[in-house]
């Protein structure tokens, strides 16, 4: 595939979110937006920057057996939807956890991991995964 899934500029502009979970928050709706938004659904533009907590709960998950080629060395792997704060949910791999221990409602914490490795010479792309607590 000649298309680059990760390019340096695209990767770098999301570092505050991928590295540090920077979100924003609408006090009117008590809702976190991750990634940050310019406007809340309620119309509020006065959103305050907040860092999301680094622990959360698995809402649903799957075990991927046929991933995109960037992830083929890691197959099979678990990935799920994790709620970190009101409204703030992420899709993240569930690392280092035996598949039969994963369940809906499981508590997990964020870890900094390498997410994608672009070829032999491309940029290394880091971000968040979760692990069981």
């Amino acid at each position: 595939m000649s298309f680059e899934s990760v390019t340096p500029a695209r990767y770098a502009r999301f570092m505050p979110q991928r590295y540090r979970l920077e979100a924003n928050y609408c006090a009117k709706c008590d809702l976190h937006h991750f990634p940050p938004r310019q406007i809340c659904k309620c119309g509020n533009k006065e959103l305050e920057t907040r860092t999301l907590p680094d622990e959360g709960e698995v809402l649903t998950y799957t075990i991927i057996h046929t991933p995109g080629s960037q992830f083929s060395d890691e197959r099979p792997f678990a990935i799920g939807i994790i709620e970190l704060a009101t409204g703030a949910r992420i899709t993240a791999q569930i690392a280092d956890t035996p598949f039969d221990e994963i369940e809906i409602g499981m508590r997990v914490k964020i870890e900094f991991r390498r997410i994608q490795t672009v070829g032999e010479a491309g940029v290394l792309a880091y971000g968040y995964k979760v692990v069981s607590m």
Binding site: V6, P35, I64, G68, Q70, Q93, I115, A125
Partner: peptide
Amino acid sequence: EWEAYNGITFPG
């Protein structure tokens, strides 16, 4: 950026 980047697929 927030789903595919982390490895999810459509079947997933």
